[in-house]
Write a protein that binds this DNA or RNA. Structure first.
Lengths: 170, 170
DNA sequence: TTGGAATGTCAACAAGACTGACTTAAACTG
DNA sequence: CAGTTTAAGTCAGTCTTGTTGACATTCCAA
């Protein structure tokens, strides 16, 4: 199985991609690619008093305007104390607006302000530019495979969240 | 361009995958998949006094036995102070051995001990299991695409490092 | 009206990254 | 050989982001 040779089954299915060596390459590809993935927004954020956590909050508030704190908590997978620290600075700095819920006044609905949208735009422009270049270089078939593997790598719950977001968009 | 419809060029090339919405889905896929990618080793490490940084060090020392501290620094992309903290505990706990270089006595060459190999095995077994399942579900073509896109997403320097490691393996 | 849920806040803490300054030892170089 | 550079390690301090635990407030719903 880990003899380094390509293996072909009766069906013609290449099993080389399941050797430990191939899996390790996949693992390292994820590690190095994720660094590239976050590098551009990180550079922008480094000049401000913000970090990756702020980027994530701003991204998902933009993606799902009016989302509740609890919903955002589930998406981000952090504790409310951790999110609250980030959210507080964003609200103080006038990037995020928190509106008391109409039907349920316990809930807070989160929205980006004009300044919030400006930051979100800068960050996602940078991140999208890299993603666009990678997608273009790799071609449509590779992109489809990329997404298929990533989806298969998610936990079931995360996958559901991802699907829900996907369906809500465009 | 961002009208939500599939676009086909003369060459028959589907350009839908370059819409902002598709790029955003790619970004979110990376975010959620990376969480899954690190979840299993993180769970194992949580029970010990170790974290993700220890995992990374152990992984790359296993991958490139005898690597110098400087080389590891370049691979991991952190400061020597940050790496040193992690490396010190690993050496103290007898998981990593540091040997003075033969030709250049300033250098330290890093190796996993038996215990180090045991931990590395546990961690990478867990991570490989998820990767293997994802690869199997997605199929060989998807896996090839996955790797193509990830490679295109890396910074040039990281990509060189990744290639060097890849060639040194199997 | 009482219990539980959603939110927020305070405090304390830890991992893991960072900068800057400095030491030691070894190797290279003019 | 003297001076400089390189590799590694250390000390001190800071920052972001995560964690627990305890507690208050508000308000919906049985």
């Amino acid at each position: 199985m880990d003899d380094g040779r390509a293996t072909t089954t009766r069906g013609g299915e290449n099993l080389l991609f399941l050797t430990d060596e191939q899996l390790r390459q996949g693992i390292e590809a994820m590690f190095f690619a994720y660094r590239g993935f976050t590098a551009d927004p990180d550079r922008i954020l480094a000049d401000m008093a913000y970090g990756r956590a702020h980027h994530r909050a701003v991204h998902f508030i933009n993606r799902a305007p009016g989302t509740t704190v609890n919903n955002l908590l589930n998406i981000l997978g952090v504790t409310k104390q951790s999110l609250n620290r980030v959210l507080r600075t964003l609200i103080e700095d006038g990037l995020v607006e928190s509106r008391v819920g109409k039907s349920d006044k316990r809930e807070r609905h989160l929205f980006l302000t004009e300044d919030g949208h400006a930051l979100e735009g800068r960050l996602s422009d940078a991140q999208r530019a890299r993603m666009r270049a990678a997608f273009r270089d790799a071609g449509p078939e590779a992109v489809a495979g990329f997404r298929t593997v990533l989806e298969a790598m998610m936990d079931t719950e995360m996958h559901r969240t991802y699907q829900r977001l996907k369906e809500s968009g465009a």
